[in-house]
Design a binder for these strands. Sequence first.
DNA 1: TTGTAGGCGTTATCAC
DNA 2: GTGATAACGCCTACAA
Lengths: 343, 343
Amino acid sequence: MRRKPTLKDLSERLGLARSTVSRALRDDPQIAAATRERVRALAAELGYRPNAAARALTRRRAQVVGLMLPRSSALVFANPYFSELLLGVSSRAEQAGFPLLLSTAPDPDFTGWLREGRVDGLLVLGSSITDADVPGLNRLLEAGYPVVAIHAAPRALQVVSVGSNERAGVWQALAHLQQLGHRRVALLSGPRGSRYAERRIRAFRSGLETYGLEADASLLVPTDDSREGGAAACRRLIERGVPFSALIADNDLVALGALDVLREAGRCVPGEVSVIGFDDTPLAAVASPALTSVRQPTRRLGEIAFDALLALMAGESVASVRLATQLVVRESTGPYVPSGGAP
Amino acid sequence: MRRKPTLKDLSERLGLARSTVSRALRDDPQIAAATRERVRALAAELGYRPNAAARALTRRRAQVVGLMLPRSSALVFANPYFSELLLGVSSRAEQAGFPLLLSTAPDPDFTGWLREGRVDGLLVLGSSITDADVPGLNRLLEAGYPVVAIHAAPRALQVVSVGSNERAGVWQALAHLQQLGHRRVALLSGPRGSRYAERRIRAFRSGLETYGLEADASLLVPTDDSREGGAAACRRLIERGVPFSALIADNDLVALGALDVLREAGRCVPGEVSVIGFDDTPLAAVASPALTSVRQPTRRLGEIAFDALLALMAGESVASVRLATQLVVRESTGPYVPSGGAP
DNA sequence: TTGTAGGCGTTATCAC
DNA sequence: GTGATAACGCCTACAA
């Protein structure tokens, strides 16, 4: 592979100093128009491009931002949710001239890229941060490295985060079901023990109380956030003979799994059971019956997260953001009809 | 932000030469075990990490590979197809220790990253390469830069490509329809003029002949590869009164659009019209009726593309690959039933 | 086994 | 306006 041309090559062929050439290429106002043109012409001819590493070394910034989407967390790309997020982030990053360095490692090294100077700022999925990661990340944050968490991160982490108001989302779902007359609502939650799941479970419990719905521990089933997981959870509910006339799933995939099982079991949706998904991914609209789902403004979230990071990198101070969710009502929810199972 | 520790810092605090420290950290066999431990201990204590830019500068490699998924081409992330691809690529990249630099710019600069030394190799979506890009890319390839195209690239480009056998895919779809007794099959193709679409149109035409199906120019409608585009195309077909009993869509989204319109129009699928999608994305299984679709081994494609790139970077010679497609039969195709429209 | 002395390609700081 | 020169942080001969 032929050597790439460098500033030195240009300067020698032009009989100019390297510094002059460098300035000419970045149109420094103090350079004579004539020489600037000479330099640019040759640069174009040789196909010169400044070396990124050398530039990063002297400027002390890589002009890259990192995005960590650990595969472990919620199947990443298999979940359309992440596509949306990536779309939001990447569109802004592109505009700002910061390519994205992407990691999907199951067990991510949150601090490495930043400390190596590989990236100037970092976007992380808050839900993928474990308690074990907190001390390292906190040290980094205290040292002033720009980091933004997407979705809520552990409380102990002093990080700027950008997310949606999940509590309100859960309540919107419950309010809708209550208005339809439902009283026994199941929750197919996320993996037991994940902060993320716990948060929604808390929201669910308090919502039950607020809306005067029945609280019953057997209505709460954990899943692994996949379609199969949703199916398994729903099956468990049915096999145990737990009466319920509506269910809220942790995401649209889980809801689809539940739909599969309800169909198998001959329970009509929404005739006998109402189903609500979460995230309002493209799958929701395609499903049959089309899913009522709690929309998170995912793409917007990605955009806002990137903008926040950029501001942090510019030394501005930035506050965390919580966007509103919205219940998108489709065909999978309907009025409560007293019948066989539910009392 | 506190200065990051460097080799110099370590060496001074240890009373060693920078080179010794450097070697110790990369466990050079020629370093005394004792000093190695001393060095590592301090490095750990200070949280030392070698600076990526400096390392890239001396080693002449960035340890990064680029992936260009131009937004313009087929809606990128909105299409689950790309999620799969990204999943394949990133899983391999992760293993190999090469973070991915991602570009989604609508008008990508294919050669920039490579010439800046920002990446050591490049994965591009073949379908996004325009004829205008060819000369620049060819120069790069001749200079020995490692590039792999995913899916077929322009003929004129001497690039290694990894794709699936789309021709065979189209033929599989046609064979299936022929066996079911269909004679008039429509094609909702990709954007007029895209190489990609032209390729499939050619495959379609030759397939019609091979399987003895009716060739009729009015059965060929271009779309923009979106759900709305599919709907529009199908609507056009119906409004023009073109008789058809089956259709093949350019991708699953387009097929969904067609499904929407057929339902509106009161044409039963698969009773009156059979529909076949392309790509077998997760949407296909969720649709109702579930879509028969031509599966491309998309994730595998991503893996293979990355592996090929790695081999190229290692100086090995690599051949292009064409993987087999597979027709996944679901509910949207059925036997031809003579009736109203189709002769 | 360790140290010395460049060099990687760019930018920034002085001079001229 | 332009030219030397010294960083930036690491690596690799070559010495010792």
